[in-house]
């Protein structure tokens, strides 16, 4: 049963991912990406981490994709006019992709899991959110603070980047007059 659901989610995820990179309209691409991200959230539930699934739905589908759709709307791109939407470097790019495909496929095929199992078995993961919270706020407290600082920097950076350059305009006017 679990396997059946895995195959359904995996198939939908791969098909929608292919559609993301192959459709011409940026808005359609964003919607296919939303489908793909929802499938990933479902896979997180299959991996017994409902907290991750909730975070995935909130942040990716709720915030990131809305930001993408907003950017598409603001920039007024719509459908790409030219028939050519493929990058002109496609020949070396396809070579790189095939090389990557072969290399990682070989690694996955030959790889063996040799690490010892930890203490968080399925019974311990029943209280998923509590366990994650405890780990996050004890063992990983320093990375947590660093990441919060990173979010603050990203917030300020995004505001500064899209701000209209009033300061420079005033300075230029002053120099001109």
């Amino acid at each position: 049963m679990e396997q059946l659901f895995f195959y359904i989610f995996a198939l939908v995820a791969v098909v929608s991912a292919v559609l993301v990179v192959s459709v011409r309209n940026a808005v359609h691409s964003a919607f296919y990406l939303i489908i793909c991200l929802l499938q990933v959230a479902a896979l997180f539930i299959l991996l017994r981490s409902p907290f991750l699934a909730a975070v995935q739905v909130f942040i990716y589908v709720g915030a990131v994709m809305v930001l993408f759709l907003f950017a598409v709307m603001v920039l007024d791109i719509g459908k790409e006019k030219t028939k050519e939407f493929i990058h002109s470097q496609w020949l070396p790019a396809v070579g790189v992709i095939i090389a990557l495909f072969v290399m990682i496929g070989y690694m996955i095929k030959r790889g063996k899991l040799s690490a010892s199992l930890g203490i968080y078995n399925e019974a311990a993961l029943a209280k998923n959110t509590e366990v994650i919270g405890k780990t996050l706020f004890t063992q990983y407290i320093f990375p947590f603070e660093v990441v919060s600082l990173l979010l603050l920097v990203a917030l300020i950076g995004a505001i500064v980047l899209v701000m209209k350059d009033k300061g420079r305009a005033r300075k230029n006017n002053g120099a001109g007059s």
């Binding site: 990179v21 598409v72 791109i77 790409e80 939407f85 990058h87």
Partner: peptide, 10 residues
């Protein structure tokens, strides 16, 4: 997608 598409949003 990163290597082949021209649209920077994609």
């Amino acid at each position: 997608g990163v290597l082949l598409r021209r649209n920077i949003i994609i």
